[in-house]
Write a protein that binds this DNA or RNA. Structure first.
Lengths: 127, 127
DNA sequence: CTTGTCCCTCACATGAACGTCAGGTTTTAC
DNA sequence: GTAAAACCTGACGTTCATGTGAGGGACAAG
């Protein structure tokens, strides 16, 4: 599979895939002409990378974690790193919950009819 | 209270506070000499801004939301926006949970003694 | 063998939330 | 009244994950 197909299948841009390779997150075989060729499991690898990016991890951190995910590295240090990142994610979830709670309060206030405006043109465009 | 004190109390940099003002998120009175002066509640306002930044909202989105938080704007549109952001946060939490779950699986694997390496130099440098 | 499509490598641009330095003013403390 | 500390306005620098050409090969189809 060449880069365009992988990009389509994984739902990311070609540029992003090249960037992942540059960061050491994704490797590819090269054809005689220099074109990248990927195996099918590259799609899952890209999914994983995206998931970790979405969780707020940096390229560098992902680079450190991937060998653990591949079960190729298993040292006390690597385990500590894994736990550290998991805890970071936990803290981030906590923060998000707080923000969500705060927004919910605002929403509740704005939807209860005690907000000062007696009659708004409610649910006119709510669909 | 001047900008330095607010920065200290709210735990952000002076530069950040000037940036918030530039983005319209935080207003300040000015002394005759042009220096910014804040009321005590500015601290909470900065906390709120930070919370929303931490939740992944952009300056622009926060700018749109703040009038709702201040209960100064309450229209069908603003309520829809609030719900949209809350839902975005929910989706983000879901993503984070997935990532966390994935990491937990890796951690479980690396801590169970079936990872291929029979005897690692475990807890030698764990402190 | 030529087109068209995909691919390659630079390399500069982008947006967000600041950091940082320059050069100058204001406030505070003694 | 003077010196230090804090503040001011630009304005350019930084980091990260890409976007966006420029200019030129690679490769399947006819």
């Amino acid at each position: 599979m060449r880069i365009g197909e992988l990009a389509t299948k994984a739902g990311v841009s070609v540029r992003a895939l090249r960037y992942y390779e540059e960061q050491g997150l994704l490797s590819a075989a090269r054809s005689s002409g220099g074109q990248r060729h990927y195996l099918d499991d590259a799609v899952d690898r890209v999914y994983l990378i995206q998931m970790l990016y979405a969780a707020g991890l940096s390229s560098r951190t992902i680079l450190d974690l991937l060998p653990c995910v591949d079960a190729k590295v298993n040292t006390p240090q690597s385990r500590a790193m894994l736990r550290a990142e998991r805890d970071r994610i936990d803290r981030q979830i906590t923060q998000l919950r707080q923000a969500r709670k705060r927004l919910d309060e605002v929403i509740a206030l704005s939807e209860s009819p005690a907000s000062g405006c007696t009659r708004t043109n409610t649910d006119a465009s709510v669909a």
